[in-house]
Design a protein around this nucleic acid. Structure first.
Lengths: 338, 338
DNA sequence: ATGAAAGCGCTAACAA
DNA sequence: TTGTTAGCGCTTTCAT
């Protein structure tokens, strides 16, 4: 790989002149002729700035880490695209990582920052594991912005409007005439689950609808959790006629299990999920869903991290624009009694 | 962040002594007492080696890039885990990227290597886009190992046993008594599609079964492609009684469309897919699938990249162990005429 | 307008 | 056994 020295030699100028031109410093102080010779030489040698050299000198990598519990979860697709678009526009690169990494000595997050591989990061901690060594980093004021999650005392976060999302989903069922509306939620300790819960309750309260406490399950967000939730809910008396599922993966599981149990959707049970993804379109029946704005969350999170890196400012933001959006498909209908 | 100098000062020794101890050189040539002082000091200061410093000096990053067309495709989950496990065992880190990145000036792959962000990479090129600048890199002998894909003339690859996978899927339908077996394949130019095609044909030939040429569609691997394939196939006369789908996403689409068209699976049409993933378990009916060994491919690819980096050796490998594995669910049955 | 030189954190060859 | 030193590629201050 060609270095600045190589380019300088070829152009017959000094290294510093080349540096000034190629790192497009605002004031490069070189004559047009020199500049042209340098640019030509760089192109001919296919020069690219060495990452390590630049990072070492400037103590900046221009890289932000994006660490989520499960990279391959369809939900994160948009988040990543948003993050990458924002980063690219601002001259940064995104480094992807998983936060569920608990392998011995792993502590991915601590390493990313501690070894100077990234300047800062957007981090979504899972509901299960609290990554090792995180506490230290947070107290050490590392430029970390939390995404859709929280750690007591940490400042700097970007979250979805979960509350509003669950509210819209619940209102959709109410408008269809349902009153026995259940809620298949995530684990009680889950940050997002708490917020979605509020939206659900508020919607019911707003319509003066009361449901038994057992109508809310708090099992989790996985496909299997959704399956379990279905059994739990359909064993109740009276059975719910509609269910809001707090996560699309759980909704897929719940739907599959309903079919297995001979429960027809939407005739016997309406299902609406918070979160949309390509999987929701391809179930049978296709799932009515509330699309959450992950793309914007990704953009906002990266913007927030960069601001933190460059100016030191922190903020806690909730993405409300654009708002969550109801996508009506075929898994919801009016209850049969109505 | 603490540097070697900080640790040295605290331990009252020279920087090089610290370096020798902490980079666990086989022959660190220090007394037990000194070593202990150094280790203690490092722990107290929470020392971590600076990535850029080390990379600049050694001209090695100990990072391998893993670049695939779609990071969030469920198919790649196992591949990534395999890659990460292998990398971790060998003291490397995996850097994830997308190969479908065609944004202006993007050329992710060229940058990753050209700027020295990675020492080498495992690359799966999509069927659609040939990433920009790739040709140059390959001819420049960059340590790149292709995964499940090919570029004319390039040496160094790790591929699945696609041929065998499609063969097993087809044989499953044959054993159930099907003879009118269709094949919903990927695009003609797709590397994997060509190989799966061979397996399908060989299985038919082995059973002395002949089918019309139109029984093979070559539309693509997406959900929508699968939907299209269903219509194409069910418009034929005679209709197939079974179909091998070359990709699980396409199979999900094909299945959904069958339901919409009132075609019952498996009564009217058996569906078996090459590839297994969590989505295949959650369709209705759950999809019979041939599980391909992506985990092993990931491991093998990273091992191959590292060997290439460290010794310069190249190889073209096909992962045959463990072999593809048939997972029978509920989307296949004997044809009704049988 | 251009160049010389210092130094970021680290490793390794060499000296003591 | 321990320390000194050069230099990886780059940016930036300071001379010229």
């Amino acid at each position: 790989m060609a270095t600045l020295g190589d380019v300088a030699a070829r152009a017959g100028v000094s290294i510093s002149a080349v540096s000034r031109v190629l790192s497009d410093a605002p004031d490069s102080r070189v004559s047009a002729a020199t500049r042209e010779r340098i640019v030509d030489a760089a192109r001919e040698l296919n020069y690219r700035p060495n990452f390590a050299g630049r990072a070492l000198k400037s103590a900046r990598t221009q890289v932000v880490g994006l660490v989520v519990p499960d990279i391959t979860n369809a939900l994160f697709t948009e988040l990543m695209h948003g993050a990458e678009d924002e980063a690219t526009e601002r001259g940064y690169t995104v480094l992807l990582g998983r936060s569920d990494d608990v392998r011995p000595g792993g502590e991915v997050i601590a390493r990313l920052i501690g070894e100077g591989r990234v300047d800062g990061m957007a981090l979504q901690v899972g509901d299960a594991v609290q990554p090792a060594g995180l506490r230290d980093l947070l107290t050490a004021q590392a430029p970390i912005v939390l995404v859709n999650s929280s750690i007591p005392g940490h400042v700097g976060s970007v979250t979805l409007d979960d509350h509003h999302g669950a509210l819209i989903a619940t209102q959709h069922l109410l408008e269809l005439g349902h009153e026995r509306i259940a809620f298949a939620n995530g684990l009680p300790r889950s940050f997002t689950a708490k917020r979605r819960r509020t939206g659900y309750k508020l919607a019911l309260a707003g319509a003066r609808v009361r449901v038994p406490k057992e109508y809310e399950t708090r099992i989790g967000y996985t496909v299997d959790n959704g399956r379990t939730a279905l059994h739990r809910l359909m064993a109740l008396d009276p059975k719910p006629t509609g269910v809001v599922v707090a996560n699309v993966n759980a909704a897929v599981g719940l739907l599959g299990e309903a079919r297995k149990a001979g429960i027809r959707v939407p005739e016997d049970l309406s299902v609406v999920t918070v979160h949309d993804s390509w999987t929701a379109e391809n179930t049978w029946p296709p799932l009515t869903a509330v699309k959450m704005q992950f793309y914007t969350v990704g953009r906002t999170a990266v913007r927030s991290v960069i601001r933190r890196i460059e100016t030191g400012e922190t903020s806690d933001e909730v993405v409300t624009d654009p708002p969550p959006e109801l996508v009506i498909r075929e898994s919801t209908a009016s209850p049969r009694s109505a």
